[in-house]
Write a protein that binds this DNA or RNA. Sequence first.
DNA 1: GAATCAATTCGATAAACATCAATATGTATT
DNA 2: AATACATATTGATGTTTATCGAATTGATTC
Lengths: 190, 190
Amino acid sequence: MTQEDQFEKLLAFFKALADENRLKIIGLLASRSYTVEDLADALGLGASTTSHHLAKLAKAGLVSARTDGHYYIYSLQTDVLKDMSRQMLQEDELPKLSAPVSEDVFEQKVLATFLDSEGRIKAFPMQEKKYLVILRHVVKSFEMGKRYTEKQVSETLAAFNEDFALLRRDLVDYKFMAREGGGREYWRLE
Amino acid sequence: MTQEDQFEKLLAFFKALADENRLKIIGLLASRSYTVEDLADALGLGASTTSHHLAKLAKAGLVSARTDGHYYIYSLQTDVLKDMSRQMLQEDELPKLSAPVSEDVFEQKVLATFLDSEGRIKAFPMQEKKYLVILRHVVKSFEMGKRYTEKQVSETLAAFNEDFALLRRDLVDYKFMAREGGGREYWRLE
DNA sequence: GAATCAATTCGATAAACATCAATATGTATT
DNA sequence: AATACATATTGATGTTTATCGAATTGATTC
């Protein structure tokens, strides 16, 4: 299982138990098996709602049902419960939870937030760190080693946002591009 | 600690961890301590949102903060994590989760659902079991041993719902009240 | 004490979720 | 086959919750 799967599994596990009535269901099933209706009566919920909760618990692998006559008998599946709690006790397992947090994910999130479907900049991020993500993305439109006139640079940047002058200035200020001849020639730095 | 406190604590624990970003925070803090801003950057969230998440985790006792200069340094509190996972491993602890499930709780829930803030019946439950809770509640407006005219009964019931005739009939049908003289006198039965 | 910086709180918005009632599905019993 | 019954699914509604940006608080430094 990949680490991201593991993360998703753990998240689903906690979400499954993060509800008052589902937690009570686990408590009830810990003593004995129940039909859906019996659980619904014990909890004071409708049968449909109870069924919905059981479906969530089953999806997380916490309960299972066997059919018996008219009824579905639900019982507790202690394996997942034990696996998860064991994982929480091992401290060296916890850092793996942050594996999904990578620069790639962060950058994709920023780009998804501030670019529209055509790749234009909807808004400029307030946070500098996010703005740098935008600039790093924008500068990829220029080839390394190639020289550009100011007009060429402006036209390329205008495809991202009408305020191409701001982009042009910040690309230089943040050292993504350099210029010489008072702005006659531009080139990409990183 | 009472069992209900224990239940609330466990529920708060699961709710605290039932969020993608809060789970990632736990993962990050498992490696080292972070400031709020660093966490916000790593997660691609605003500082206020991150602060909100940390507050939830802190309330569940999962993280703690110490102040250092301008910064608040958040770190993981492994005790609660260990306590909770240990509890899940002990099967005899689980049935206690269902302790909050009592008739009282059920009745209160039904009443909260179907009565408005002034105690009037918003809607009539479809489920008979819940309707009985309503009737049992309504009949408390009448004193045991006292006789009432139909007009008195109707006026008292009208305070609960405009369909006082339905309530009057069902109170009799379900044996909460009795009448004689073809409806000239009513009295409470249970 | 004024200015600065991080963190929290507040107010608003949008998405997720629990719940219900009604309908559909599917299994047993006649 | 037909009916009856328990469960699942659907559609609708109200509540909760995650998120943001702005304003405020709190603490530090000059």
